[in-house]
């Protein structure tokens, strides 16, 4: 079991130094049009995956981004790292403007910003052994000249992810490892460059429940003991609730609410957050009951609803919601919400 005590988790947030600042980030994926359509003119269509998102992450924080599939959380994570080029907006990492960097500068920044992908079965080359998988970032960054030099780094990374003794795993191939071990390798690969910031995109959703805790606790330890900052992207509010310092909720490319975890989970303000929390099943048969869920389904991000994007499904929507898009405004102490009626 993990070494971090519950009390250590309850740190005050909101006073730290900002490490990542995202300003009005936009990512649209243009849709291809047929010849006839483009001749006829008309508006360019695009999937508005991320449509104006602003937030910041503080040093050493575990910041959770939660939302249903298609809300743009993964696209946002990748756009922040510029694995996808943003359509508009600005990302600043410490004092470096990530969105203005050249390819060469970006490559240098990769030593400080890394990512862990969702699927440990697909994010690794099956033909490389553990040693070569973890050595790859070092080789790309030119930090080692040959594979022998890489060994100390690799062994340290393996120890960091509690795969000990490292020699036992160095020459194994991904198929010889369990899902949890593979995801540890993915974490080790992200850690080998000693980054300050890691985007963890659904790092446990492919794993069995009994081993999810291992990876989550690992992230928690890295953040508490080494000060690594995490952007934890997930659809699972229940795990975010237990490891994140702050949580932001996304719906159709927009951030609808963000705040300190306890506050947000216990006193959600936005109708979408309330529905999302209500829909999460509780592993307790004495608290039976299906929460009230929103009617209908998530509309297409190509042509999102006008005004507040939730209005066609929202139980408290009024006329203003159809026309005016609500801004993310402070409700109290670091808790922000984008709803015309959330604040009474």
């Amino acid at each position: 079991m993990g070494a971090v005590r519950a009390t250590d988790q309850e740190r005050s947030v909101g006073h730290g130094e900002v490490i990542l600042d995202v300003e009005n980030l936009v990512k649209h994926f243009p849709l291809r049009r047929g010849i006839a359509q483009s001749l006829r003119g008309g508006p360019e269509l695009a999937v508005k995956a991320v449509d104006g998102v602003s937030f910041n992450v503080k040093k050493g924080e575990l910041f959770g981004v939660v939302g249903e599939s298609g809300c743009g959380k993964t696209t946002m994570g990748r756009t922040i790292l510029r694995l996808l080029e943003p359509t508009a907006g600005r990302v600043t990492f410490e004092d470096i403007e990530v969105t203005a960097l050249s390819a060469e500068q970006l490559k240098q920044l990769r030593t400080r910003m890394q990512i862990i992908f969702q699927d440990p079965y697909e994010s690794m080359n099956p033909r490389l052994d553990v040693h070569r998988i973890i050595a790859e970032p070092l080789r790309i960054q030119g930090m080692v000249s040959n594979s022998k030099d890489a060994i100390p780094y690799i062994e340290k990374a393996l120890e960091d992810v509690e795969m000990t003794p490292p020699e036992e795993y160095l020459y194994r191939y991904p198929h010889e490892l369990s899902g949890g071990q593979r995801q540890r390798i993915a974490v080790a690969r992200a850690l080998v460059l000693d980054p300050e910031f890691i985007v963890a995109d659904e790092p446990v959703s492919m794993l069995d429940v009994s081993i999810r805790g291992e990876i989550l606790n690992l992230m928690l330890n890295l953040s508490r003991e080494r000060g690594v900052t995490f952007l934890y992207i997930t659809h699972d509010l229940a795990t975010a609730r237990h490891i994140c310092d702050r949580i932001a909720v996304m719906y159709l490319g927009k951030m609808v609410e963000k705040g300190p975890t306890d506050n947000l989970v216990k006193h959600p303000l936005h109708p979408y957050t309330r529905a999302l929390i209500g829909a999460v099943f509780v592993p307790d048969p004495k608290r039976k009951g299906f929460g009230k869920v929103l009617k209908g389904e998530v509309p297409s991000p190509v042509d999102p609803p006008s005004g507040c994007r939730l209005h066609p499904r929202c139980p408290i929507a009024q006329d203003i919601c159809k026309e005016v898009e609500p801004e993310l405004v402070p409700a109290d102490d670091n808790h922000m919400v984008a709803c015309h009626f959330a604040l009474g």
């Binding site: 005590r5 237990h242 490891i243």
Partner: peptide, 8 residues
């Protein structure tokens, strides 16, 4: 909020 447990 508690620590997330796992089975080794």
């Amino acid at each position: 909020r508690t620590r997330v447990r796992s089975l080794p």
